[in-house]
Design a protein around this nucleic acid. Structure first.
Length: 507
RNA sequence: UCCUCGGUAGCUCAGCUGGUUAGAGCACUUGACUGUUAAUCAGGGGGUCGUUGGUUCGAGCCCAACCCGGGGAGCCA
């Protein structure tokens, strides 16, 4: 049978099956060739034994190279030591296409090199695992909203007016008129919520920010639910249920993948606990160390982190020196030297990470101490704040000056706009931004003037308040940031098949 | 736009205060090893040291400008 996949080998133990795939790796021994085959669904070690196959097959097994494609036939044997738990005792092998000098070797590579070979990098284990988790998350998003009675609608990607300034928009030529690639479907989502009750959009979003950081992409996918007859509290309830649902789905369906990328799931499992809801005012106090959380002080915690980082740097430097001294002694076996060298390599990588933390933390501390009530949080402020929590936190009631014109003003205290930012733990920061929308026509018009926006471009939007305005709320979730946190990746670029970012348009 | 770190073999890096023919590991290749999981052993080929200009008897190393990349600030999901 040719439709066998590695994923389904467990149902075929003892049977003779044929797999179709690619060679990920090869090890040879006297009379034996071990092939690691991947077929997209998983990995399987295939053993070619010289004494059990035709000579021609054994010769093919010996000459087959990394990433050659093949059809391979053999008996499925359970073996707990193997990735996936099964191996194939080969009786037949057909080379479909021989590959030559595959650029991505089992050794470490630099980011630039890997990014230039993204089309091939996607074949590696880690990327395989991440893309499967991405798939789970996308499906879970649909499942959650569909299950709660939302309908998926889509906002346009071309927009004619620059809502929040043209500096962050990509301009294109739309039949001779300037048009911009959408940086949010928010306003259209509101129109659709007035038509269909509860909706969500799920599509690509474009931001022309010249940001070169671990959490920015120029093209990313955003989920934007919008709910009629919902207020800020109901919005926060929805966000919490939603994030919990998605993360639990990943924990359920991707244990293998999470393990492959080395994700410690302890923090993820705490997603079942309530998310703290903190007003902006309190968040600022926590940030400045004026308010403690469960007896923990943000500033003091960070200072302790710094001490720890410095101790770690010293320990790493000592270990590197020790291993280098060992290698320097003549007479050590080559293999052992290689072992020490690879350890030193790892240590040096960790050292540069720790050194970076050592440089950053004092800056973060300064930023936190000097923070002024009324400002928006910067990336480091979010890190300092979330350092004290193991679940996402929801910061709400923001100074209205820092939020968009459509955000509803708090009826009790006009200083605040009823927005909410959800900050992920472990240093990931903002993954969701949302809030309750302004419903009053006159306040909205005032805000549009205040932001110096072109009134005529918003006439259609104002119609939503003229014809049956209702309280409504919604939020936007950056898919890639959610994936990055779920997988604890150092950078969002690995969460999307072909990242588009400042300075990167190919492949 | 600004700050910061970097660019040496196909890949990852070393190259001490400037000094003869620029090194290692991996990958590739030849051979040895009956089960390996990036840690076996022996041999082999492979480099305009990002670009341009300068300092010097002499530059991979020093200086300047530029190009490319990493991280961060601003901005944000």
């Amino acid at each position: 049978m040719l439709d066998m996949t590695i994923e389904r080998l467990s149902a075929a133990v003892g049977e003779k099956v044929t797999l179709q795939g690619w060679v990920m790796g090869k090890r040879t021994g006297k009379g034996l060739v071990f092939l690691i085959v991947r077929d997209g669904s998983g990995l399987c070690q295939c053993i070619v034994d010289e004494s059990k196959v035709d000579n021609a097959i054994f010769e093919d097994a010996k000459r087959i190279s990394q990433e050659s494609s093949l059809r391979i036939t053999g008996q499925v044997v359970a073996d707990e030591r193997q990735v996936g738990g099964y191996e194939l005792h080969v009786s037949g092998l057909e080379i479909v296409s021989l590959s030559q000098d595959f650029p991505i070797t089992p050794k470490e590579h630099g980011v630039d090199f890997l990014m230039d070979h993204r089309h091939l990098w996607l074949r590696s284990k880690r990327q395989w695992a991440i893309m499967r988790i991405r798939n789970t998350i996308i499906m879970a998003i649909h499942e959650f909203f569909q299950g709660e009675g939302f309908i998926q609608t889509d906002a346009p990607i071309f927009t004619g007016n620059a809502v929040e300034g043209t500096s962050t928009l990509f301009e294109t030529d739309f039949y001779g008129e300037p048009a911009y690639l959408s940086q949010s479907g928010q306003l259209y989502g509101e129109a659709m919520a007035m038509a269909f009750g509860k909706i969500y959009t799920f599509g690509p979003t474009f931001r022309a920010e010249k940001s070169k950081t671990r959490r920015h992409l120029s093209e990313f996918w955003m989920i934007e639910p919008e709910m009629a007859f919902h207020n800020l509290d109901m919005n926060m309830d929805t966000i919490e249920r939603f994030l919990r649902f998605v993360v639990l789905k990943v924990l359920d369906k991707n244990t293998l993948e999470l393990d492959m990328i080395g994700r410690d799931t302890t923090v993820l499992k705490q997603i079942t606990e309530p998310f703290p809801r903190i007003t902006y005012e309190d968040a600022v106090k926590i940030l400045k160390g004026e308010l403690e959380v469960d007896g923990k002080n943000a500033i003091k915690t960070l200072e302790a982190d710094l001490v720890e980082v410095q101790a770690r740097i010293a320990a790493i430097q000592a270990e590197i020196a020790e291993r280098e001294a060992k290698i320097a002694v003549p007479g050590m076996k080559k293999g052992e030297i290689g072992f020490h060298q690879s350890k030193i390599q790892q240590l040096k990588e960790e050292l540069s990470e720790q050194e970076e933390a050592g440089r950053n933390i004092p800056m973060w501390l300064k930023s936190a101490r000097d923070f002024r009530m009324g400002n928006d949080f910067g990336g480091s402020d979010e890190t300092v704040l979330t350092r004290l929590f193991n679940t996402p936190i929801m910061v709400y009631n923001w100074p209205h000056e820092v939020k968009a014109f459509y955000m509803k003003r708090d009826e009790q205290d006009a200083r605040w706009a009823k927005g909410v930012d959800v900050l992920a733990p472990e240093g990931y920061g903002e993954i969701v931004g949302g809030g309750e929308r302004e419903t009053q026509l006159d306040l909205l018009i005032e805000k549009i003037h205040e932001h110096e926006l072109p009134m005529e471009a918003f006439e259609w939007y104002l119609d939503l308040r003229r014809f049956g305005s209702v309280p409504h709320a919604g939020f936007g979730l950056g898919l890639e940031r959610l994936i990055a946190w779920t997988c604890k990746l150092p950078h969002v670029r690995e969460t999307i098949p072909f990242p588009r970012m400042y300075g990167r348009i190919a492949p």
